[in-house]
């Protein structure tokens, strides 16, 4: 009776069914992302009052922090999917892991760029060798390594499995890097900058931030579904269901 959940999950793992499922959900996810994003932007850019310390410059927080959060969250999803892909050899898990990597890299890149655009007026420098910034940079390299390794194999599934292994090594590495850079900073006694802005945020600033976080989550799902669909088509290009799609789309 309670059997339908594993059964449903099992069915979802089959490429044609996931393809249709993702195709149905994707527009909704995108709509949620755009709607929530618009609300968050209005709240953050227009409604929220200027900060008493940073005046209007703090408004970068509404994209910077959600992006930073997503960069870590997507790495976590990628590592979990990689683990599933390696242990149970589920094709869909490989696709999810490998198609998460470019999205995660995009968010990491956004985090680094918006962070330095925020850092320049606030700390007077584009870049500082702080533990968080350095870890984020290392995260970008990890993403790029996973993407590069995936694409360097001729066989896609083999590449996915190798890159999944690298992703798992990487997730062990991130906390180590964070810890070691922290230690390194105490050794060098460099310019100590407080990264965390106001420790207590007023509600006017908090709700756009949380809304934006939800919007980025939905965006990730929408983008992941789109990418996974393309990847499944490419992987299964010999199968009948893909041929049917190819022929149907040629009609108009």
């Amino acid at each position: 009776m309670a059997n339908w959940i594993p059964l449903w999950l099992h069915k979802l793992g089959s490429p044609p069914i996931f393809y249709r499922f993702a195709g149905l959900l994707r527009p909704w996810m995108l709509a949620f992302a755009v709607l929530l994003g618009a609300v968050a932007l209005y709240g953050g850019l227009v409604l929220a009052p200027p900060d008493y310390q940073q005046s209007d410059a703090y408004r970068i927080i509404f994209i910077h922090v959600p992006s930073a959060w997503m960069s870590l969250f997507i790495y976590g999803v990628m590592a979990i999917a990689s683990f599933i892909a390696l242990v149970w050899r589920i094709k869909l898990a490989e696709v999810v892991a490998m198609e998460s990597a470019p999205i995660g890299a995009a968010f990491t890149f956004i985090t680094l760029v918006t962070g330095s655009l925020w850092g320049k007026p606030m700390w007077g420098t584009w870049w500082t060798w702080d533990a968080r910034l350095t870890s984020e940079l290392v995260l970008l390299f990890l993403y790029l390594g996973v993407i590069g390794l995936y694409h360097s194999f001729e066989d896609r599934r083999q590449g996915a499995r190798a890159a999944a292994f690298l992703a798992i090594i990487g997730i062990i590495n991130v906390p180590i890097v964070h810890f070691s850079v922290n230690w390194w900073n105490t050794l060098h006694q460099g310019s100590t900058i407080r990264i965390l802005g106001p420790s207590k945020m007023s509600g006017d600033m908090l709700w756009p931030l949380l809304t934006m976080m939800a919007a980025t989550k939905f965006y990730y799902l929408a983008s992941l579904f789109g990418r996974a669909r393309v990847d499944l088509l490419a992987m299964e290009s010999g199968k009948d269901w893909v041929r049917k799609i190819a022929e149907d789309e040629a009609a108009p």
């Binding site: 200027p50 005046s55 209007d56 410059a57 408004r59 970068i60 994209i63 910077h64 992006s67 995009a106 890149f109 956004i110 760029v113 918006t114 655009l117 925020w118 320049k120 007026p121 965006y219 983008s223």
Partner: peptide, 19 residues
């Protein structure tokens, strides 16, 4: 943006262009 336009708008532009 209270004088910070040169930083805020490029940040938002990067966000949207990349996504």
């Amino acid at each position: 943006m209270g004088g910070y336009a040169a930083y805020i708008w490029p940040a938002y532009a990067v966000f949207f262009i990349v996504l």
